[in-house]
Write a protein that binds this DNA or RNA. Structure first.
Length: 295
DNA sequence: AAGATGCACAACCGCATTGTG
DNA sequence: ACACAATGCGGTTGTGCATCT
């Protein structure tokens, strides 16, 4: 199908939103709900395209958005989830209540990616660089090794699922490894235990970035509680109901999912194998790792 | 003081996916 | 089954501010 413009371009405003526009949008949505984004601008009197309105609302104006710097815990979670999910920002964001995919994407591109690079970790694969990699400073902490293990296991799981779905009953066209396998695992009881371990091990320090930008000392802000409870309970409200729902843990997964059993062993092993002290110390101790010139 | 540079983040663009008639 | 509309998503760009030279 051919490409369409998202909206009629004539006379539509672009660029940063002004406070008056924000107010109009908020008032309208509070009153009527957003309904059809495409018709919202006309109905509300805004000279914006619907897409722009949607973006402004979902990334900035929504009342449940948590503003302010990311906590250390959130950053850790983003890194861990990125190791599992890759650049699926929306899926990652669904695990961080109050954070938007855009925000997480920015965090990754401006901070976390660089930090991993500084550590000698490939931000794409989460594997330590080899001698021929972008840096000549391979550093294999338990955390990075574990990230690599996650990735390997994920690939292995995908491959196996693919094979198994072929083996069972699926026609070739429907063979599609479940990319959310690890996310479901993450949200499973096993994952919850894992997260608890993380939670116990954590200190309520803000991230080095946050500290740098706000001059706030460690401990000034208590650690955020990553509430993933509703996910397992099946009562989450993902911002997209149309895409795959990675955060809904399928109850059949832990007990009766044949096709997941083997891979879940591997994954379980990985979850349990994750350093108890949650060795992502590079996040806490950024000075230690920020020494290379390129950092 | 002024220009250069870097950084953070909001916003846009275009493709992908899903819904609907 | 198909075409089209609507929306979601990820990559990229633009802009404003802070810091450096």
């Amino acid at each position: 199908m051919g490409r369409r413009p998202c909206c009629e371009r004539k006379g539509l405003k672009k660029g940063p939103w002004g406070p008056e526009e924000d107010e109009i949008l908020i008032n309208y949505i509070n009153k009527h709900g957003h309904g059809s984004w495409r018709s919202l601008p006309k109905l509300s009197g805004l000279s914006r395209c619907g897409k722009s309105c949607r973006l402004r609302w979902t990334n900035y104006l929504r009342p449940d958005i948590k503003r302010g710097p990311f906590t250390l815990d959130e950053e850790k979670l983003v890194i861990q989830l990125h190791a599992i999910l890759g650049n699926r920002w929306a899926a990652i964001a669904s695990q961080l209540p109050g954070r938007t995919d855009n925000e997480i994407k920015n965090l990754w591109n401006t901070h976390l990616k660089k930090r991993l690079l500084c550590m000698g970790v490939d931000p794409l694969t989460h594997e330590p660089f080899t001698s021929g990699g972008p840096t000549t400073r391979p550093r294999s902490s338990p955390a990075t090794r574990h990230m690599a293990q996650w990735e390997s296991a994920r690939l292995e799981a995908e491959a196996r699922l693919s094979k198994e779905s072929l083996f069972f009953n699926s026609p070739p066209t429907s063979v599609k490894p479940d990319p959310d396998f690890f996310l479901r695992l993450w949200n499973s009881e096993v994952g919850e235990s894992f997260r608890k371990l993380n939670g116990e091990a954590k200190a309520d320090c803000r991230s080095p970035i946050s500290q740098a930008s706000t001059s706030t000392k460690c401990g000034s802000v208590s650690g955020v509680t990553i509430d993933v409870g509703p996910i397992a309970a099946g009562s989450s409200t993902p911002k997209s109901s149309r895409t795959e729902d990675p955060i809904m843990f399928d109850a059949s997964f832990s007990s009766s999912s044949n096709e997941s059993e083997d891979t879940s062993d591997t994954a379980l092993q990985l979850l349990l194998d994750f350093p108890i002290n949650n060795d992502m110390s590079f996040l806490d101790d950024v000075d230690t790792y920020a020494t290379p010139p390129q950092c």
